[in-house]
Design a protein around this nucleic acid. Structure first.
Length: 950
DNA sequence: GAGCACTGC
């Protein structure tokens, strides 16, 4: 086709592969149609070569081709105005693609409605039964719920009846003419009004939605194609990028990730899955529980737990360990002696698993089975016997109850993820177990780490439970890929073109691509969309969706909707899809082998996000995401050699990468005094421990013996970083507790607070500038944002108008409420200094953040450069700060981050005299004066250099 | 004039 197109596609070209593996993109000259289902293709397709939905596909294809032929014929005939008969025919809604899609959607909705009503009916029946059984025990809230459901069911049934009588749709009265009949003409006019177009001679012609779409796409692609593309028209030369064999990424198959269903033929797998599905539908909860791989090991497991105080359980995904083990312990009577706790690294996991187990046990969530996470405690002290909780929550509980007295068994789930909290809990629980022989500790781990975990836990036995996942075929590239973004895009289309839309067992053939961050994800999404657009109707529709944590919720929700029929979905995601989010319809995973990792430098106190290669454990976790609902394929954009020789076995535990201030304070509060000799699974670097300890000493949370002071004990209760806790404690003295609490809550979210849509950057910046309160820098500006939101009565509209993420502000509100409650507990009296009174607030911040002081460097041309007082590191104000354009001589920073360079994020101005006043043990006026003087230039010049920037 | 992977209290 056009050279223009060719040159564009060259951007995506990476290297010429002489020996091309015919598993991918081996088009012969037998045309596109053939190649899609060629027997050769079936080699990659380890499952059935003829998918079960083939018939539907062919029918649709035929309809589509017929439709396209009709369109073409009509275009040819269209030299004169169509006669009446033709016109009528054209106006008749033919089975256009849009119509088909709409119809299938409607059918789907209808089916779904029926299902929902059936569910609701069942629920109401159950509730009525329960109400009969236990009238006096039900709370009024429950009764209200029951009543609501009943009403909902009544309305739904009523609506259904209306539908039955009126053929589903009602036309507005406008479409009914004077005689009371439905006017066909009027209706057609309305339907096609939008699509009336004029040809070059100014004659009217009707354009369907599909045509219009094609036209738009063709124009946008600037392709020199005049007729709409159809499969038959595709000239392979035009689409070099997709069809040129030399451009395809070459993959080599590796031994598949076995899954639990190894050694099964395709037919067996198919059969198994059908059986499983049938079971799921028919079986009662009890039967489902018995069908889990766990069940046949129940007695053995309970015996092992009875015999051994500590046990490592290796339960693969889908084994049901998280839901079943606590129930088994309950059934075996452990809950008579105390609560069975199960920790999770994530809040959603704790909530959803608890809900599931409550369902299985047959109780209301929050009674016998409950969960406890930050901001939400859904347990009942008298009733709850199985408690799911986040690891951090259990750690916090231990501060007031170090012997874990109320628990009879503790299960640390997902311990292989090695969060700081799980690591510390493991060490503490191991210790407590020595003193409490009745306590049972179960640690769940992945296969890879089980040995190490067991060695750490006094060589306790390892209990293996098989999982229920499908095998995943692993492919490596033959040679390293230089540009992983381009390689991803190429691979996506290799899959899309060569693989059937549906998996062999009827599961969806969706693609999941792992990218490092928002930027890459956006770029990849645009690239894939652009390429798909150029190909037009030559390929099946490809729906591309991004997924990452800071994406607005409504955008995120899209990936959880069912993939439409005849469409392949391609989700381009950050690491969020590795553990936090499960996408069941994924059959192909593309793994470039990178992720962003947080690196902390204890010497400078600087954090940075670095793109680094992932570990083998991570890579296998990613691959496993392709085998949730059926056998899958994982395409790794790195070589087998790199996998085994260049990648680490497992991800560096968080404790080796994170700042330790808060962790050490927590440990001290738990009574651990000798930190360097603490029984770490992986001891943190000494530099880091020492840096953290000296910081805690500086804010007087530790005394010279390294013991917790009274303030330190209070600070350990406050879930913010130690400098912030010190600020909060100091605010009582300066009478600005309320303001400081608000600011500290805001600072935690300040990064994700403002959003700047690409097309409204100026408006967003203007809205943001409106909040600026220069005297107190970012701190008072944040205060003002919160206060205005509060005044708007926490309005959603207000957030939208000011380009602020409401999700973030809601979190701020939660944190603030929690801090207020905590202040009451640790006896900090509420006080307020008034919004316009910046002085006390600045003093409180200086009292907590005094180690984070920086001095403007003079003589530096261009951008204002600072030097940190304590470490002498060269840093700059982050451009998102309100002080960026007006840098003060002295300032305090909340945190240091390294991105494109070293930045201070969230800063406030500072008087050096205040620094000496609040921290005389740390800062001496003499030293500060020395810093303020410049060797080369007199003081005045420095000042005017700043002044000239205004 | 920059930009934030993901959790958790």
């Amino acid at each position: 086709m056009s050279t223009d197109h060719r040159s564009k596609s060259k951007k995506l070209r990476r290297r010429d592969n002489d020996d091309f593996d015919d598993r991918w993109g081996d088009e012969e000259d037998d045309g596109f149609e053939e190649s899609v289902r060629s027997p050769k293709r079936a080699r990659l397709d380890v499952r059935s070569p003829t998918p079960p939905d083939e018939d539907a596909d062919t029918v649709d294809q035929r309809e589509r081709m017929e439709f396209e032929k009709r369109l073409k014929d009509r275009d040819k005939k269209d030299s004169g105005r169509p006669n009446k008969r033709e016109q009528a025919e054209l106006k008749e809604p033919t089975a256009s693609l849009a119509d088909l899609r709409l119809r299938s959607r409607q059918e789907y909705l209808k089916k779904r409605e029926a299902e929902q009503i059936a569910l609701l009916r069942q629920q109401v029946a159950e509730e009525e039964e329960e109400a009969r059984r236990s009238k006096e025990k039900l709370t009024s809230a429950e009764l209200r719920d029951f009543k609501k459901n009943k009403e909902l069911l009544r309305l739904a049934l009523e609506r259904q009846r209306v539908d039955e009588h009126t053929d589903g749709y009602q036309l507005p009265t406008d479409y009914i003419d004077e005689s009371g009949k439905i006017s066909r003409q009027k209706r057609h006019d309305a339907l096609y009004q939008r699509y009336v177009d004029r040809d070059d001679q100014g004659r009217e012609r009707y354009v369907t939605e599909a045509e219009e779409w094609e036209k738009r796409q063709t124009e946008m692609a600037k392709a020199q194609v005049t007729a709409p593309l159809s499969r038959a028209d595709v000239n392979r030369d035009d689409y070099e990028f997709v069809f040129d064999d030399s451009q395809a990424v070459k993959f080599i198959a590796d031994a598949p990730l076995p899954g639990a269903r190894k050694n099964m033929t395709r037919e067996q797998l198919l059969f198994e899955e059908r059986v499983a599905e049938a079971e799921k539908k028919a079986a009662s909860i009890e039967e489902v529980r018995k069908s889990l791989p766990m069940y046949q090991f129940r007695d053995q497991l309970l015996q092992a737990i009875a015999d051994h105080q500590i046990l490592v359980v290796v339960g693969e995904t889908g084994s049901g360990k998280t839901t079943q083990i606590p129930q088994y312990l309950h059934e075996a009577g452990y809950t008579k002696r105390g609560i069975v706790a199960c920790t999770q690294p994530r809040r959603v996991a704790a909530m959803s698993v608890a809900a599931r187990v409550a369902d299985e046990v047959g109780c209301h969530l929050g009674n016998e089975v409950g969960y406890s996470i930050r901001f939400e405690d859904k347990t009942n002290p008298e009733k709850t016997v199985i408690k799911y909780m986040t690891d951090g929550m259990l750690l916090r509980e231990l501060m007031s109850e170090p012997d874990m007295g109320k628990y009879s068994a503790i299960m640390l789930d997902e311990a292989h993820e090695r969060t700081v909290s799980t690591d510390i809990l493991m060490a503490l629980a191991k210790d407590v177990a020595r003193a409490r022989p009745d306590l049972r500790l179960i640690v769940s781990s992945a296969t890879l780490d089980a040995q190490k975990m067991s060695a750490y836990l006094d060589n306790c036995p390892i209990f293996n439970i098989p999982g229920r996942t499908f095998p995943v075929e692993i492919m490596f590239t033959a040679a390293p890929e230089a540009n992983y973004l381009a390689a991803c895009v190429t691979t996506i289309f290799q899959i899309h073109i060569s693989q059937p839309l549906k998996g062999p067992t009827g599961t969806s053939g969706d693609i999941l691509v792992f990218m490092t961050g928002e930027d890459d994800i956006t770029a990849a999404v645009e690239n894939v969309q652009e390429t798909a657009r150029k190909l037009g109707s030559a390929i099946p529709e490809l729906q591309v969706l991004p997924l990452y944590a800071s994406l607005p919720s409504e955008e995120q929700a899209k990936v959880f909707t069912p993939t439409p029929a005849k469409v392949r979905r391609c989700i381009i995601s950050s690491n969020i899809a590795e553990t936090s989010v499960t996408l069941p319809s994924v059959n192909f995973v593309i793994d470039p082998g990178f992720a962003k990792e947080n690196v902390y430098n204890p010497r400078t106190g600087m954090e940075s996000l670095v793109v680094s290669p992932i570990s083998r454990a991570s890579a296998n976790q990613r691959a496993g995401r392709a085998g949730r609902t059926g056998p899958g394929t994982c395409l790794r954009l790195y070589t087998r050699h790199a996998f085994y020789n260049e990648m680490e076995e497992s991800t560096t535990p968080e404790i080796l990468r994170a700042p330790l201030h808060s962790v050490l304070l927590t440990l001290k509060a738990l009574g651990v005094n000798d930190l360097l000799d603490f029984d770490w699974q992986d001891p943190p670097h000494q530099d880091n421990v020492i840096a953290a300890l000296s910081q805690l000493y500086a804010v007087a949370f530790l005394n010279h013996e390294g013991r917790l002071t009274q303030n330190g004990r209070k600070a350990a209760e406050i879930p913010v970083k130690p400098e912030a806790a010190a600020t909060l404690l100091a605010s009582a003295k300066y009478g600005c507790v309320d303001e400081v609490i608000t600011i500290l809550s805001m600072l935690g979210e300040s990064g994700a607070l403002f959003y700047r849509p690409k097309n409204q950057k100026l408006q967003a910046d203007a809205a943001r500038a409106r909040f600026t309160v220069k005297e107190g820098g970012d701190m008072t500006t944040l205060l003002r944002v919160y206060q205005e939101w509060e005044e708007s009565d926490y309005s959603y509209v207000w957030c939208r108008e000011n380009f602020i993420q409401q999700k973030s502000l809601n979190r701020v509100r939660n944190v603030k409420e929690q801090l207020v409650k905590l202040c009451d507990r640790i006896e900090i009296a509420p006080s307020s200094c008034g919004a316009s009174n910046v002085g006390p607030i600045m003093k409180a911040f200086a009292a907590g953040f005094f180690p984070n002081a920086a001095r403007l460097q003079k003589g530096s041309s261009g951008e204002a450069s600072y030097r940190t007082v304590k470490t002498g590191v060269s840093v700059a104000i982050h451009p998102s700060s309100v002080l960026y354009t007006d840098p003060p001589k002295w300032l305090l920073y909340y945190e240091l981050v390294m991105t494109s360079k070293e930045f201070m994020r969230s800063v406030c101005p500072l008087e050096p005299a205040v620094l000496v006043e609040v921290a005389p043990h740390y800062h001496k006026m003499k030293d500060l004066e020395k810093l303020g003087m410049d060797r080369k230039m007199p003081k005045e010049t420095g000042k005017s250099a700043v002044g000239s920037r205004l």
